[in-house]
Simulated scan of single mutants.
Amino acid sequence: MTASVSTPAARATTADRVRAGALLAGALLQVVAGALGGSGAFGLSVGQVAQENTTVVMPVPAAFSIWGLIYAGLLLLAVRQALPGQPGRAVHRATGWWLVASTVLNAGWILVFSAQAVVLAQVVIVALLVVLAVALARLTAHRAEGAADRLMLHGPVALYAGWVSVATVVGAATTGTFLGAPGRGGVATVLGALVLLVTGAIAAAVTARGAGAVAYAASVVWALGAIVVMGPPLAVTVAALVALLAVLAVAVRRVTTAPRGTRLAAAFG
């Protein structure tokens, strides 16, 4: 991978400034929604709803602390992209509104899940995954222009996308349980194991080619590891470990096989 060449930003337009302001407002909105959803202000807390619909792929509750890091990263991204010289950049024009949509969808998911509208919540989180996938793909087409982009743009989006990749699968299982499907037992175990293997394969492919490879892989590994720690049936544990190791191996390979001097770009660019 060749080093990125910094390109001058276009002069910011009114549309650019509106987009930058919307992303900053959205980043703050999801922080507030996350705090309220965790406290049960909208009904039950997110954790309570999840525990009432437990499945074989449920992560250990402590794993959800990653949301604090995701919120902090998105807030840092939002502040930076609103600073002088940033709003007119092509990368922000390509990704900004998609990231705004992600903040609104995340806040909406918290609201509807806390209200126990589990099916609607699953529709929302699938939409969130799609939006983040588009944002990450567009970032991949705009290589990072230095360490600041890697830390405050590619990294936060990739971390967010990685976590939501697994959270969507967990949410699907939760939705099935809510609708009356068995959360545990032979069929649930087989389906859970198969879905985790497919998730690992997709996540490994994204890690191999996408922007922010290390951040993306780290959040996926964190989520899969949390499922293992929860102590699911053996088949699910093995599947989660296989998926985890596949993603980790691809991330390590991407970094170690990059030419010396470009490894940081390979990891975070």
Rank of each mutant, 00 (worst) to 15 (best):
A158N: 00
L153T: 14
L69D: 04
Y216S: 05
G38R: 07
P259G: 01
L69V: 06
W67Q: 03
L28M: 15
T13K: 06
G40M: 01
R260C: 10
A217D: 09
A213F: 00
V228Q: 13
V166K: 03
G162T: 05
P233F: 07
R80Q: 13
W67G: 03
G185A: 02
I110R: 14
V220K: 09
R184K: 07
A35M: 15
L136M: 00
A121E: 05
R93Y: 08
Q86T: 07
A94N: 02
Q86C: 06
A246G: 13
L128V: 13
V247F: 12
F113V: 04
A167I: 02
R93Q: 09
Q51G: 11
A107D: 04
P233C: 06
P259H: 04
G212Q: 11
P61K: 13
V198C: 03
G261M: 12
V118K: 08
V170L: 11
S114F: 00
L191R: 04
T177V: 15
V124M: 09
N106L: 13
L139A: 09
V242F: 01
A82Y: 04
G37I: 02
A27G: 07
Y216W: 01
T55R: 13
A266S: 15
R150N: 01
P59M: 06
G192H: 14
W97M: 13
A226K: 12
I66N: 00
L44F: 09
R143C: 10
A208M: 01
L136I: 01
A203V: 02
V124Y: 06
V32E: 09
V104L: 15
A239C: 04
V247K: 12
G68M: 05
N53V: 11
L153F: 11
L224E: 05
G38Y: 05
A223C: 08
I125A: 11
V123K: 01
G68Q: 00
V123Q: 07
T168N: 00
A12F: 14
A78V: 13
A15V: 13
G269K: 13
R11D: 15
A137R: 13
A223V: 03
V190G: 03
N106V: 14
R138P: 03
A115P: 01
H142G: 13
A217W: 05
R263E: 11
A205H: 02
V214M: 10
T174W: 04
Q122N: 14
Q116L: 12
W109R: 04
G186F: 07
W163N: 05
M230V: 10
V255N: 08
V32Q: 11
G176L: 14
A161T: 09
P232H: 05
A240S: 03
A127F: 08
V56Q: 12
G88P: 07
V170S: 06
P259V: 05
L36E: 14
A72H: 01
A193K: 12
V228K: 00
G261C: 09
A137H: 08
A90H: 12
A240H: 01
G88D: 08
Q30L: 15
S114E: 01
